[in-house]
Design a protein around this nucleic acid. Structure first.
Lengths: 350, 350
DNA sequence: CCAATTTACCAAAGCGCTTTGAAAATTGCA
DNA sequence: TGCAATTTTCAAAGCGCTTTGGTAAATTGG
């Protein structure tokens, strides 16, 4: 069923039927009702391809998911982020175009999406320090919003980010307050912008208390369970092991927890762990006593905000850039306790 | 830059330029080269919207991701599956349209995608027992492939599935061989087809050894870490606790592991755990000594197979249905050992 | 009651491509 | 050299919609 058939059926012109369906005022209300009813009865919906050509709008937002054929890693927060963004798209009549590309052809993929005019706007995921995609998209003149920011880029662009520096500063301060001094940091890959900011916050907190940041306690890698497990296992078996861990995601933290219990230690008593919690749906860290002390910031909520910002940007092209900082909430769980040395000192006092 | 501009620039007709770009034979090789070069120089790519209208093909595959606004759960295997499928789409010039919808309007979403002619084919995720989407898509006459199967549907349809019954039978047999008799099953939601099949395999293995399946040891829920943790904690604290767990995914298994160590027990010695491992990229269970004994079947690989099957189906509409069974591989890890009673008996013998 | 609006509808053009049917240019062979 | 066969190129139609620039019918006002 197409527009012509529907209008022939109704004895109306295509113009009138189109206008009736799209809510234009120059059509009598009784006519509109007839049209809407006929459309429903025949399960008619305007052909998306034709509509897009006629209007010059794709009504589509592009997301590029780079996958490395080498290590086969898919960012685990991606699904939750996209679920949040997708809700907003659905509510606003946009489609979501997901382009899965090899990570070395990511820029080409953006270019192609724009020159094909397949999308009205793009989301940039996981910006690196001085990320080249931002300049590219500005040059291409396509609306875009970054989830995160990119240090060293002074040009204006729209972003929604969580305050990573502040979050990690608070996590580290929390441990310092409990008497910890040897605090390991398990961070994301070094070229990721968020990892840089997290590192900065961690170092700032230590230095504010006169504790030297020890490079031997700072690690960068993909945030897998394995990374957490192996790093913690080595550290805990070594000389002068850390008494606490700051971990960039719940996933490596699960590995850390495993290493702790494999070492015959108890998390929250012998070793403390704090995390950044993206509120992944299948790893709830909420409730009365969350497993981990954490700064929490829902990545799904971030997806909603990013999507809404982009849609607004598309609707009003001349508008200001949208820059939005989300603050993470610190919640205390069962993974932290006083540093062992401090605890022993206090116990002896009694 | 559009086709008209490009052809004016070259002093050729739109026809010739179009044919040159699309590899038709009726254009001189030297002309084709000029056209290709000019297209590259001006970064021209045919407008996707116009091309789709002209060809009548969307060159797009639809995936519907239902999200429940209530429990905010996103299927964790989704990202890996889609990464696999997306690779195949990219290789074949297809776009991936992801529709995120409230789970009670999933059917309406399929209908809409089809009547808008926004997609050439659809993937069905997470089929339930007697899933209504299969009849719907058959009725709509749109090519589709199901990831999984749906019991009680006798009509023919294309699917790619892992042999869930056989996998869980083998896992259970493995535990029985080690002397376990009280074996708990932590399964997915009861209405999911895969969960039914897994339950069948588990029960079949037990009954083959004359062990009665105990309903008090069989659990259905969303496969979160929390589900694993809380179920195992209660069971281990109760009378007559199980000595082994069969768990539907590595995520609840991580919860089970936590409950075991919280109970002062050791996984692999006091309590055995076997899992179905989807080979999620951030939870590697591979290497020399995987943490868990598992049947492994890469969900990313499944995504590739499903996508390829659908593309083939679209290319040759009249073809047979595609029905493909993937077999999972059993690998022994450190999470399993002889049942404590058996081990004690053997130790006494010495 | 009739001119001036306003309302309700329509025919046709256009979005940027592909594809059909025909014309122009080139080639082969007598 | 001349003409048929072949190769190469082109003009125009069509994909299914929106939107422009109307016109006829209904309504209003003096």
């Amino acid at each position: 069923m197409n527009l012509k058939e529907l209008s022939d059926l109704l004895g109306l012109s295509q113009t009138t039927v189109s206008r009736a369906l799209n809510g234009y005022p120059e059509v009598r209300e009784s006519t509109r009702q007839k049209v809407l009813e006929a459309a429903r009865a025949h399960n008619y919906a305007p052909n998306a391809r034709a509509k897009r050509l006629a209007t010059g709008k794709a009504m589509t937002i592009g997301h590029v998911l780079p996958v490395s054929k080498k290590h086969e890693m898919v960012n685990p927060i991606f699904a939750d982020f996209i679920a949040g963004a997708g809700e907003i798209y659905s509510d606003n009549g946009f489609d979501l175009l997901l382009s899965v590309v090899d990570d070395d052809s990511e820029e080409a993929s953006y270019r192609k999406l724009v020159s094909r005019e397949a999308v009205d706007g793009l989301i940039v995921h996981g910006p690196k320090v001085n990320d080249s995609r931002i300049a590219l998209l500005r040059e291409l003149g396509v609306p875009f919003v970054v989830h995160g920011r990119s240090t060293e880029i002074e040009a204006e662009y729209s972003w929604v980010d969580v305050n990573n520096a502040r979050s990690f500063q608070r996590l580290t301060e929390f441990l310092l307050d409990l008497g910890h001094r040897r605090i390991a940091l398990l961070n994301g890959l070094a070229d990721m912008d968020f990892a840089t900011r997290r590192g900065t916050g961690y170092v700032a907190a230590l230095e504010a208390r006169g504790v030297m940041a020890d490079p031997a306690l700072m690690f960068h890698d993909e945030m897998t369970e394995k990374f957490g497990f192996e790093t913690a296992r080595v550290l805990l078996a070594g000389d002068n092991p850390p008494t606490a861990f700051v971990v960039s995601s719940i996933i490596p933290a699960i590995g850390v927890r495993r290493a702790i219990s494999d070492s015959g230690l108890e998390m929250g008593r012998d070793v403390s762990v704090v995390i950044h919690d993206d509120a992944l749906s299948y790893f709830s860290n909420e409730g009365d006593e969350p497993a981990f002390t954490a700064v929490r910031s829902s990545v799904r909520q971030a997806g909603r905000h990013v999507a809404q910002a982009l849609i607004n940007k598309i609707a009003t092209p001349g508008a200001q850039v949208h820059q939005e900082m989300l603050e993470a909430v610190l919640t205390v769980g069962r993974s932290t306790g006083q540093a062992p040395a401090l605890r022993q000192a206090l116990e002896q006092e009694k």
